[in-house]
């Protein structure tokens, strides 16, 4: 009964919710309840790049994402936060359909990238992925030269024009704040770079084909503070030019780099607000608890 009441009041008055017990909603989610996410009204009137509607995902019999609906605004950095195993990576990988590689995955619902459906029948997945760049948690440079790594997306597209490739290479490396460090060793193996450089190389590769969106899955988790701050600076520079969806475990990082933040819990979207609001005046006590580390 109590739970039903919560559901009813979700959109109505956040103040009322705040008075609720510490992590009542999260417990309820753990018990299998579904809640309407608390979405900040500001987010509903923005230019949308990615629109997720009623997205569910199952690994075999286990459901990993529950009816996620959200929109990612253009030119902004959107952070996904939430405890480990809550489905952040799964959601991110659903955007460029990397989950197709996992045999047991089943989905329902849809996403739209600039109005084009991602999961409709007959979508060319390969063409779709070319419209997005992805940076993985662990840097994954390819076993080839730095140059070839950066222009890989163009190579597979069959681009042969040397001048154009050179230009893209330089532009992407500059974009990833790596140019000065590697401009003299472009033909050397990318595997000889340091971990932080490798990660920035992956960013350069991700932006080489001028994607409509950048997906980053904990891009700094394997890096030291200096390399991390470089990547964060980089994200800051890319803001406005690119739409970025970034998964992070680091609250400070989310607060520093993102415009909007989505808090996920056990496969559900719990709260989605502008970052400033979310960190300073969250709609839900649960979010506050998570952010302040009172919930673990």
């Amino acid at each position: 009964m109590q739970l039903n009441q919560t559901q009813v009041t979700t959109n109505g008055s956040p103040e009322l919710l705040k008075k609720r017990s510490m992590d009542g909603r999260l417990k309820a989610i753990a018990a299998g309840e579904w809640f309407e996410p608390a979405v900040h009204p500001d987010l509903k009137q923005q230019d949308v790049v990615l629109e997720i509607t009623g997205f569910n995902l199952w690994y075999g019999a286990a459901q990993a994402l529950f009816d996620i609906s959200m929109t990612i605004p253009k030119g902004k950095v959107t952070a996904l936060i939430g405890p480990s195993g809550c489905g952040k990576s799964t959601l991110l990988r659903s955007v460029n359909r990397l989950n197709d590689l996992v045999d047991s995955v089943r989905i329902s619902g849809d996403m739209k990238l600039n109005q084009d459906s991602i999961y409709a029948r007959g979508v060319d997945v390969i063409e779709l992925r070319k419209r997005m760049g992805m940076v993985a948690q662990k840097s994954n440079p390819f076993p080839m030269s730095i140059y070839e790594n950066v222009i890989y997306p163009l190579r597979i597209d069959g681009v042969r024009d040397k001048a154009m490739l050179d230009e893209v290479c330089e532009k992407s490396l500059r974009g990833a704040a790596l140019w000065d460090e590697v401009k003299d060793r472009l033909q050397q193996s990318a595997l000889g770079l340091s971990g932080g450089q490798q990660q920035r190389l992956c960013v350069a590769r991700a932006i080489a084909a001028e994607p409509e969106m950048l997906l980053m899955d904990e891009p700094c988790s394997a890096l030291d503070p200096i390399a991390t701050s470089k990547i964060e600076d980089l994200i800051d520079q890319l803001r406005g030019e690119y739409t970025i969806l970034i998964v992070t475990h680091n609250m400070q990082q989310a607060a520093r780099v993102s415009d909007n933040t989505a808090f996920m819990y056990l496969g559900q979207l719990v709260e989605y607000s502008p970052t400033r609001t979310l960190f300073q005046k969250p709609q839900l006590t649960e979010t506050e608890d998570y952010i302040s580390g009172r919930f673990g």
């Binding site: 070319k130 992805m134 993985a136 390819f142 080839m144 190579r155 597979i156 590769r205 084909a209």
Partner: peptide, 23 residues
């Protein structure tokens, strides 16, 4: 992770095999 990186760049399976996996 290497294969996924390649797929994420929009490479087909064959391109991934030829350019990443085989080398």
């Amino acid at each position: 992770s290497m294969r996924e990186g390649s797929y994420a760049c929009g490479a087909s399976k064959w391109q991934t095999i030829r350019r990443i996996v085989l080398p």
